[in-house]
Amino acid sequence: MTASVPSPVVAAQPAPVVGPYRRMVRLFFANRLAVTGLVLLALLLLFCFVGPLVHPTDQIHTQLADANLAPGVKGHPLGTDDVGRDVLGRLMVGGQTSLEIGIAAGLLATLIGTVWGAVAGYTGGWLDAIMMRVVDAGIAIPALFLLLVSATIFRPTVTTQILIIGCVSWLVPARLVRAEALSLRSRDFVQAMMAMGGSHRRAVFRHIIPNAIGTVVVNATFQVADAILLVAYVSFLGLGVAPPATDWGAMLSNGISYTYDGYWWLIFPAGIAIILVVSAFNCIGDGLRDSFEVRLQGR
């Protein structure tokens, strides 16, 4: 009997049965921030992947005669870059790279981290201690440093970028999932199941993972956002995917030499695109977190 919080408890009897997952989806869509993020992301995806069909441009060949044209000139809505390529079209193509690497690497990191963390947290003992020291060691090396070293060792392509970023950034989700698994393991419903003679496999797959999924999904969206930023950093520092492929970070890096010439269209579109896409994922993550937490409060 808790009398501490004056909670207006009502014996609500909703007629239709609403499962926890469906309730979450509902709460998610009721969250204005989350929906904004989702719409923004959909628009950006359309822009990058469908945009080139509407606004076809030549991103392979240089047109030095048309270099550094201001926006609006000669049918280039956002002008051209220093070798005469259409900036709007380049933004679309570059966005494809950024999004592909970011999403794939974020998901890869989440997958590795979830498995690693769940095993460590559920098993406990010395195995847990060793696995977590490995995570500590990985976290101690700043991701960007490791990425730059890797970029000098392996020739950067989309695939290697995905693999490397994925392998560098799984550490945070591993920590989170491990903490979750550790606390779920001692919860009464897992204990009750063990007392019935249930197996470890059932404990992990039927109880621990479904209950940790909230943390995992929320973190995955932040992971994707971080991965997109990392890609941009590496490219900005000149060690991203090799030309003619490009991404938003590389476009910005290219534009930096023209800061004093007032060629703003070489800097701002790419920068703003990065902000928009990262914000979109962060909005979705915040919205998801809210809907998961309301579920916890509702109990």
């Binding site: 926890p20 919860r187 009464d188 204990q191 009750a192 209950n211």
Partner: peptide, 14 residues
């Protein structure tokens, strides 16, 4: 078998 104190945490919410 076993019955626990807190019925909220002894049933899997999922």
């Amino acid at each position: 078998s076993i019955v626990f104190q807190d019925p909220a945490s002894s049933l899997d919410p999922r």
